[in-house]
């Protein structure tokens, strides 16, 4: 006679759904990029990846061991709060190291990773509690603190990354001589961060994630779509060809950030409409920073800025899990206004 246990309904759970599976899928989706990075940048990439991942995982492990000690618990080798088993720290570490340029000094990689993990995730209470994207914070720490040490490998022909070129001589089709759109798409012969250059492989990873339903496909679609539309608008006003918007979405960290960083579910809104609005806001801010900001690249900043507004999207007074007519109208007018802002900016800049 077995023991009868009483529980509350429902008594079933979905098979094949777990946080581990979700995070592991992200790692799998990043594998082609990682391989491409190693193929292209050699041992440099291997070291950066190793140090990036280890800095984050080790920081988390040490933190939980120290916390357990402070709580007066017995020290055990397998810490129960440690999240290596569900790939979450590893995913952050991998994404973080893939956003770094290939000649980043290793101590910088380490400090960025450890600090990023600590400041963005652990102090907020660990997995599921962080407000900011961990990889994003680590990346920004590196840019801001070690900006002079971190520069892209200067290509003998081009002299700068695609976006730096564009930032310096905007609206000049001459940039295409250095970087053809095809090269930007495949990532061959393009300087840049070790994992961000190949649009093709990023899209492949995104398709894998979409099929495994391990990320919200609306965010990258809307994000990239917004950047495309806004830059097309600029292209039309300036009278330049369709290469301009494609140049924007293929270069820099846009694809990578949209597919792997903006979609982090912990730091994105929770409802379908809010995720669409979130993607749009990301695109808008990215375009603003790229066109009018001091930095040539705005993806990580856009993601971190919008991370701050996630609780606003989810505020109980206006959050709603379905699209409604009224909300669609408001959203459409916001889109129009932001188009106008970009246009005015371009005309008077």
């Amino acid at each position: 006679m077995p023991k009868i246990i009483s529980k509350s309904a429902p008594h079933l759970r979905r098979p094949n759904a777990s946080v581990t599976r979700m995070m592991r899928d992200v790692v799998i989706a990043l594998l082609p990029l990682t391989m491409f990075a190693i193929y292209k940048f050699g041992m440099n990439a291997v070291w950066i990846l190793l140090v990036g991942i280890i800095s984050m995982v080790a920081t988390e492990y040490l933190y939980y061991q120290v916390m357990d000690l402070l709580d007066g618990e017995k020290l055990v080798l397998r810490n129960k709060r440690f999240t290596l088993y569900n790939y979450s720290a590893m995913t952050s570490g991998l994404i973080y190291s893939l956003t770094l340029p290939d000649n980043t000094p290793l101590f910088v990689v380490f400090i960025g990773g450890a600090l990023g993990m600590f400041l963005a995730k652990l102090v907020f209470g660990g997995m599921g509690q962080n407000i900011f994207n961990v990889a994003g914070v680590a990346r920004v720490l590196v840019v801001i603190n070690f900006g002079t040490l971190v520069s892209y490998d200067i290509d003998s022909v081009a002299g700068a990354t695609a976006l730096q070129m564009l930032s310096e001589n905007a609206f000049n089709p001459a940039v295409l001589d250095s970087f053809s759109l095809l090269n930007l798409f495949t990532g061959m012969g393009i300087p840049g961060s070790i994992g961000e250059v190949s649009t093709l492989l990023i899209i492949l990873g995104g398709i894998y994630l979409a099929f495994r339903t391990s990320f919200e496909v609306r965010i990258p679609l809307v994000y990239i779509g917004t950047v495309f539309v806004l830059t097309s608008l600029v292209a039309i006003v300036e009278g330049i060809g369709l290469w301009y918007p494609f140049y924007h979405i293929f270069s820099g960290g846009l694809m990578f950030g949209a597919v792997f960083m903006a979609t982090d579910p912990i730091t994105s809104p929770i409802t379908k409409p809010a995720r669409v609005y979130f993607g749009f806001a990301l695109g808008f801010i990215t375009v603003i920073i790229r066109l009018f900001g001091a930095y040539p690249e705005g993806v990580v900043f856009a993601i971190l800025i919008m991370n701050m507004f996630v609780p606003t999207f989810d505020y109980y007074k206006w959050t709603h899990s379905k699209f409604t007519r009224k909300r669609n109208l408001i959203f459409a007018s916001v889109v129009l206004v932001s188009m106008l802002v970009v246009l005015v900016g371009v005309l008077y800049a």
Binding site: V19, M22, M127, P265, S268, K272, T319, S321
Partner: peptide
């Protein structure tokens, strides 16, 4: 495990609550 805010419950809810 900790909630990762994936939103499956919000997407699936038959009465559209969160």
């Amino acid at each position: 495990e900790p909630c990762v805010r994936c939103g499956s419950c919000v997407y699936s809810c038959p009465v559209s609550i969160e």
